[in-house]
Amino acid sequence: MAAQTYALAAVMEDNYAVSFPFFGAERRGAPVMAFTRVDKDVIRIKTQIYEPDYVVVLDETLLETVDVLKGLKEDGMVVINTARRPDEVQLSREVNCATVDATSISLELLGRPITNTSMLGALARATGEVSMESIERAIMEKFGGKLGTEAGEKNARAARKAYQDLQVGMCRGGKDFVPRKEWLPTVQEMPLGGSIGALETEAGLVGIGSFVRNKTGDWRTFIPHVDHDKCIGCRMCWFYCPEGCITMEDQKAVIDFDYCKGCGICAQECPVDAISMERERR
């Protein structure tokens, strides 16, 4: 949505723009990529972007595992959602860096940790490629139409706040990233039809049982907390948890944080509000 809104704002300023998402495993807030190209001329190329001018990082936890600067042009810029100042952020190399605490802004103004509209304001300021006025108009058109004028205005305010709060500087370099090993079998190595049991590969275990090793809890921005004094053991959270990571011990819900992705569904479903979602502190 954010990438599309940025494209819309660019078009409002007589540019041509193209924007598209690439989804992996799906969950609200799960790591996804989106790409946007802006040009004065018609854009014909249909590929993903491998050498961007700007990289926007909505989820700070990704900085630990992914070299977000990979492919970024020498004079490019990275815009990050973090409470830290640019010079407090260490990445693989020293580049132009802008930071803003979009999560706090979104929580304050929208009541939810959905940071994409705030980051649009940050991006407008960081790049100077699109005016803040166009971003606001685009947000009103994209979000206002669908969610109502009030929601549109709230999102526009969040963007404006991020625009104002943005800090621009340089990040520190020198952080080492061990390139993530991927299992990329050839036709000959691929089990016929892709049917696999437990398979040891150069990238670790794949297939059956691999989740025992591949913990997915580090995707979390929010962490559920169960108040066992309030919990009545009704199992609603257990029933709804999409990760199957809740068990019942002595009639109380217990969460396995190795796999909990912080989606908040359990908190939503609990009939006695025994579960609260709190900011994850790492």
């Binding site: 992996g24 991927e182 990329l184 079998p185 050839t186 036709v187 691929m190 089990p191 016929l192 039809g193 892709g194 049917s195 696999i196 049991g197 297939g207 059956i208």
Partner: peptide, 28 residues
């Protein structure tokens, strides 16, 4: 059989595959 659904020796058959894998499976 090449691959068998067997509870004592579990397998994934016909699971999700991102673009990194499907083209090799088509070639097969």
């Amino acid at each position: 059989p090449q691959a068998i659904l067997d509870t004592s020796n579990p397998m994934t058959i016909g699971s999700f595959a991102p673009p990194e894998y499907i083209q090799e499976i088509r070639y097969q």
